[in-house]
């Protein structure tokens, strides 16, 4: 059985970057797959990888990470509006998927489709 845990953006919105990453990683280390509304900042994604590496041991082998994000091909005012909204409210668009490496074998990502392969199952589509 695979457990997915949904994290609404509001649940991590006011946390510091370090706490936000730890919150997500702690869930993953319980062998659950995190589905987070929105995405982490670029630096936070790098920090997530860094902290994951620090925590790797014989039981925790790392993570599989994927982000579905809408194509940002807006022009002019719409683009400015999106940036302002992101700056004010955080980037709630898209979805971040983080799974423990001992459960999730691979996540294949196309621009608008994600395929998640678990260790003991064949294929799951999202």
């Amino acid at each position: 059985m695979v457990t997915f845990q949904f994290i609404p953006y509001g649940e991590v919105e006011y946390l510091s970057s370090a706490k936000r990453i730890n919150r997500l990683l702690n869930i993953v280390k319980e062998n659950k797959i995190v589905l987070m509304e929105g995405r982490l900042k670029k630096q936070e994604e790098a920090d997530l990888i860094e902290i994951t590496m620090e925590e790797i041991n014989s039981k925790f082998r790392g993570i599989e990470l994927s982000v579905i994000y809408p194509d940002n091909k807006h022009d002019g005012m719409k683009k400015v509006k999106t940036h302002v909204m992101n700056a004010l409210l955080g980037d709630r668009r898209g979805m971040t998927i983080i799974g423990p490496a001992n459960v999730v074998r691979k996540i294949e990502q196309n621009p608008d489709k994600i395929e998640l392969f678990t260790r003991d199952s064949k294929k799951r589509r999202r």
Binding site: K42, E45, L65
Partner: peptide, 17 residues
């Protein structure tokens, strides 16, 4: 290999940032 891996995207994003 598939270029759409999150590692590639994270690397590129951090270089741009």
């Amino acid at each position: 290999q598939d270029p759409y891996s999150q590692v590639n995207i994270t690397i590129m994003g951090n270089l741009v940032a």
